Simulated assay, not measured.
Amino acid sequence: MAFESSLLFGIYSQTKQSLQGGVQSSRPQPQVIIPSAAFAGAIISFVLCPSELVKDANSRLQVTGAFRGGSTTFLRESIGNAVFFSVYEYVRYYMHLQLKSGSSDHNNLVDMGIGILSGGLGGVAFWSTVLPLDVAKTIIQTAPDKSSPTNPFQVLNSIYRMSGLRGCYTGLGPTILRAFPANAAAIVTWEVAMKLLGIKNN
């Protein structure tokens, strides 16, 4: 998790900086945020796919390719992180406009509160958007038959026919409950680390 998060936030920050071309803008720029986040998500999918395959107890009992479900993980991470960082950047920007004032101590508390809310909402948006892809990925990776379909849309179509939209969002409640605090903590940690290292988060 530490490696994955470092990679995700590092690639996102560096790509965003490159796309901005040294021009700093306080206002979020979707033409910079979305490709930076999608690229970062795409790269970490190559780390996540084999690790998630091994993590699942059923999968460990089979001989499967390390990247079975790789295209689904790639889609989930690219789309999900584009959504996550867009929500994070916009919530952060508009909350700073409304709330940032007063002493530096107060500003630190405000920054932390903004980090908690923007990170938590970003995490909720991520999983609300891509949970069906995660459901499909789990089915693909745990299928006992190697000849089972690996196309996530084909898998989701089967789930939808059998269980409707609810089936595509299996586990949404616990996922959202976990997503808010986990992503809030990740964002606050990232922002504090950047402050301590003297890196401007723009």
Rank of each mutant, 00 (worst) to 15 (best):
V87W: 03
V47H: 10
S101D: 12
E52F: 09
V83T: 13
G70I: 01
C49V: 12
V47E: 12
Q20N: 14
T73H: 02
E77D: 08
F46G: 08
Q29P: 00
L97G: 14
Q14D: 08
G102I: 07
T15W: 07
I11S: 08
V23L: 10
N107S: 14
S36R: 03
A40D: 15
F67N: 01
F67M: 13
Q29V: 06
A38S: 12
L61G: 09
S103Y: 07
S45P: 13
P30V: 13
Q24V: 15
S104N: 08
F85R: 06
F39S: 15
A38R: 02
T15A: 14
D56K: 07
P35A: 02
A42F: 15
P35Q: 05
I44S: 08
I11D: 02
T72Y: 03
P35W: 06
G21P: 07
V83H: 11
G22E: 06
M95R: 10
K55F: 08
P28F: 00
L75I: 08
R76V: 05
Q98W: 11
Y90W: 11
R92F: 06
Q24N: 12
P28R: 05
Y88L: 15
E77L: 09
S13Y: 10
A42E: 10
R68Y: 09
K55S: 14
A66M: 11
Q14L: 09
I44E: 01
S78N: 04
F74G: 01
V63A: 12
Y88W: 11
S18F: 08
A66I: 02
E77K: 08
Q14F: 06
I33C: 12
P50N: 05
L99P: 04
N107M: 05
A82H: 08
V91W: 00
L109I: 08
R92N: 15
F67C: 01
A42H: 05
I33A: 00
L7Q: 14
R27F: 07
L97V: 09
S25P: 06
A38Y: 07
S6C: 11
S51E: 09
F9Q: 06
S104M: 02
S101A: 10
G70Q: 04
I79V: 14
F84L: 14
S36W: 03
N81Q: 12
G21Q: 01
Y94V: 09
K100F: 02
S51F: 06
K55C: 06
